[in-house]
Design a protein around this nucleic acid. Structure first.
Lengths: 202, 202
DNA sequence: CCCTTATCTGAACAATGTACAGATAATAGC
DNA sequence: GCTATTATCTGTACATTGTTCAGATAAGGG
């Protein structure tokens, strides 16, 4: 029954969420550069102007969508993390690798949405919302690296570079693959290289 | 005098280059999502339809521009490389770092153009043109890594990961900074971490 | 029950990408 | 040097887009 407003005709009931959700659907399918406000409105069955009561312009809608995607990615990562039990070295290693793997998997599964997240539309949105240190994905990364450190499973002198190096490397490889400049098969090698570099594996 | 066709009125003379060049100018200023074919045509003083004799659509023009930007970046990198003489360990290290630094500098100087290079418009363009191993930037990277290896200035077991890891890391940090998710000040730390990881520095 | 307020519609405007018929200039053959 | 061919560009047209704004419609409080 969702919000129980399915039959609402003139007053939609929850147009703001509907706009973001439909924008998500269409962006996922066609990419951000082909998303039109009018299509979103038509899909919902509402006039084009209706959207302007909730977003000042098309870019703001995309910004809001983009922001929600960061939450979605973090959700996915945490769901996968939850599957790994234990607190030993092996589990710590697995958790670190899971963070990288899920980042990549999510991007490959939803390349258009991934592109939106790191496009100009999300520039001010995410920067003003919160510094990166407070984002859930970043916190999880820090936690995983700390766990590796206390397990003695990471090169101590590399720890200060842990977050920056991991995020940059994983994001870089992912971006290059999504953009078509690198083949998917290379991602595991990058992750291997990163782990060896950090002293997580030999 | 350039191409000496400055006075051409009906037949422009070199419209194809003019289109790319003007597209470059406008994209540099406004970003790829705000580039319109009509503006490009107007800037040149030609009708909107004229462009369609050289490019099947707007996306193709952007693809051609994007492709030329990879050459431009490689040019810049090679110009900077040329300033470093010698064949010792110190020069090898400096060359490696220069490749990373120039990649970043170029992107920060021209964020809109950098975004275009790794957007969907350049997907088929660059993938079909040549595999990455044959691009000049990639060749220069391989050369720098080989030089480090023969100088004994790189961890031997890291060498197989050299290209993938370096490119991913530098591209990732650069992308995150250009997208506003990381502050510029962090780039040097990333490069430091990468060099330590590869065993280039302590 | 009415009146205020939030929500949505409808019509309008300028700008965009693109198609196509025709105009114009360059060039090749004689 | 003239003409026919061809490459190049214009003009007009159309559908679609983002956005604005006056007005219609419904919800909710007095």
């Amino acid at each position: 029954m969702t919000t129980a407003k399915a039959r609402a005709q003139y007053h939609h009931g929850d147009l703001e969420s509907a706009l973001i959700l439909t924008a998500r659907k269409l962006t996922k399918r066609n990419g951000v550069e082909h998303l039109s406000l009018r299509q979103v409105a038509q899909e919902i069955g509402v006039s084009p102007s209706a959207a302007y009561h909730y977003f000042p312009d098309r870019d703001s809608l995309l910004g809001a969508l983009g922001f929600s995607l960061f939450e979605e990615l973090a959700d996915y990562q945490e769901r996968e993390l939850a599957k790994i039990s234990g607190s030993g070295i092996k589990a710590a290693r697995e958790r670190f690798r899971t963070l990288g793997r899920t980042y990549f998997e999510w991007a490959v599964r939803e390349p258009h949405l991934f592109n939106l997240m790191f496009s100009d539309f999300c520039l001010i949105e995410s920067a003003s919302q919160q510094p990166r240190e407070e984002s859930r994905a970043y916190i999880n990364l820090t936690r995983a690296l700390d766990e590796l450190l206390t397990s003695g499973a990471i090169d101590k002198k590399m720890r200060p570079y842990g977050e920056l190096l991991s995020w940059s490397t994983v994001h870089g490889a992912t971006s290059l693959i999504v953009a078509g400049h690198l083949e998917s098969e290379n991602f595991d090698a990058v992750l291997d290289g990163l782990e060896i570099a950090l002293g997580i594996r030999k």
